[in-house]
Amino acid sequence: MLRSFQGFAIVLMLASVLLVACGPTPTPEPDQVTLQLNWYHEAEFAGYYVAEAQGFYADENIALTIREGGLDVDVVQALLGREVDISVFGSAEQRKAMEEGNQTVALMAAFQISPRVLFALADSGIQKPQDLVGRRVAIKSEGWRQTIHETLANVGVDPAEIVEVEVKSDAIQMLYDGDVDVWTGYVHDEPVETQLAGYDVNLIFPGDYGVGAYEGLLCVSQETLEQNSDLVARFMRATLRGWQYAIEHPDEAAEVIAKWDPDHSLEFHQLAMRALIPLVDTGEGAIGSIKADQWQRVFADVYDPEHPGYTMQFVKGE
């Protein structure tokens, strides 16, 4: 009888061990990832905010920290100095990295069309670059001057035919008061502000005239891509889900953005989202895609075929 009991106990013990062994595998600790933005919190980063809010990064076992950018933040140095794991670059920052021989790799371009715009009040009659002849155009910086000159040159207009007015970037009241005819900015910012002030606007996208480049480049170092490709793939899956969700639910996305940028109204964020969506989802190619010929055109003077500065291995359909 004792032997039978001992045998039964051994069977129970073995069964318990097997149950434990066959039980669910403990979830590993999430990977800590820091994302550096290249500007202050606003709608242009909607895909990341939404992916975080919807738990898409958590689904990929990623714990995300988002660092705000700004005028004094060097996003290239933050990435190369390993202060952050991944960073949003503008085309200017990627160009800087490529010029200096740094192997940063763009995983996607959030914006197929640059959100940089020239705009005028609707009753001005200004609708295209040719209409700027003889008009007073606000010049905020040398960068904007170059954008305006290139846009005009590409349609056969001599930049000397416009009236340049040096302005401060926050002096948009000059447009409302009629002191200038054309202002510059980003489609999700200054034009939205103007609409909320009660004015209809006409937009001119330099990108429609061959000026500008991909924007919202999500970049990693070549080292990170090679050593942590699985983590990069998971991050990209979550990010693309975030952008797709934001596009399909713009008002919900606006509510999420408002939590990151409470200084603007919900209506501002709603209008900003609607302004950005056509630049993200153009209907041509997958969201985030980068076309080889366009990339080479934009970065022709710094392009190296052995280190092109981008990859499409994580964007579906590319």
Score class of each variant (00 low, 15 high):
residue 10 I to Y: 04
residue 24 P to S: 08
residue 25 T to K: 15
residue 28 P to S: 08
residue 30 P to E: 03
residue 30 P to Q: 08
residue 32 Q to E: 15
residue 32 Q to V: 14
residue 34 T to E: 11
residue 39 W to V: 11
residue 39 W to T: 14
residue 42 E to G: 14
residue 49 Y to H: 07
residue 50 V to R: 04
residue 54 Q to W: 00
residue 58 A to D: 01
residue 59 D to F: 00
residue 61 N to F: 00
residue 64 L to R: 05
residue 69 G to M: 03
residue 69 G to F: 06
residue 73 V to M: 06
residue 74 D to W: 05
residue 74 D to K: 05
residue 78 A to P: 02
residue 80 L to S: 09
residue 82 R to M: 04
residue 83 E to H: 12
residue 83 E to T: 12
residue 84 V to A: 08
residue 86 I to E: 00
residue 91 S to H: 15
residue 96 K to S: 14
residue 96 K to L: 15
residue 97 A to I: 12
residue 100 E to H: 14
residue 100 E to Q: 15
residue 103 Q to G: 02
residue 104 T to I: 11
residue 107 L to E: 02
residue 107 L to V: 10
residue 108 M to A: 15
residue 118 L to K: 06
residue 119 F to M: 05
residue 122 A to M: 00
residue 126 I to V: 07
residue 133 V to R: 11
residue 135 R to A: 00
residue 137 V to L: 03
residue 138 A to V: 07
residue 140 K to P: 01
residue 143 G to V: 09
residue 154 N to D: 03
residue 157 V to P: 07
residue 158 D to E: 11
residue 166 E to R: 13
residue 178 G to C: 06
residue 179 D to S: 12
residue 179 D to M: 13
residue 181 D to K: 13
residue 182 V to T: 10
residue 186 Y to E: 11
residue 186 Y to N: 11
residue 188 H to I: 04
residue 188 H to Y: 15
residue 188 H to Q: 09
residue 189 D to T: 15
residue 189 D to Y: 05
residue 189 D to F: 09
residue 194 T to Q: 04
residue 200 D to M: 03
residue 201 V to Q: 00
residue 214 Y to M: 07
residue 221 S to A: 08
residue 223 E to W: 05
residue 224 T to F: 01
residue 224 T to Q: 09
residue 235 F to C: 01
residue 239 T to I: 03
residue 240 L to D: 00
residue 240 L to P: 05
residue 241 R to H: 05
residue 242 G to C: 07
residue 243 W to E: 02
residue 245 Y to G: 04
residue 245 Y to D: 13
residue 247 I to M: 10
residue 249 H to V: 09
residue 252 E to D: 09
residue 258 A to H: 13
residue 258 A to G: 00
residue 259 K to C: 00
residue 259 K to V: 03
residue 260 W to E: 01
residue 260 W to N: 03
residue 263 D to R: 15
residue 265 S to K: 09
residue 265 S to Y: 07
residue 268 F to Q: 06
residue 270 Q to E: 12
residue 274 R to G: 08
residue 276 L to R: 03
residue 283 G to K: 04
residue 290 I to R: 08
residue 292 A to R: 14
residue 292 A to Q: 15
residue 294 Q to I: 12
residue 295 W to Y: 14
residue 310 Y to R: 03
residue 316 K to H: 09
residue 317 G to R: 12
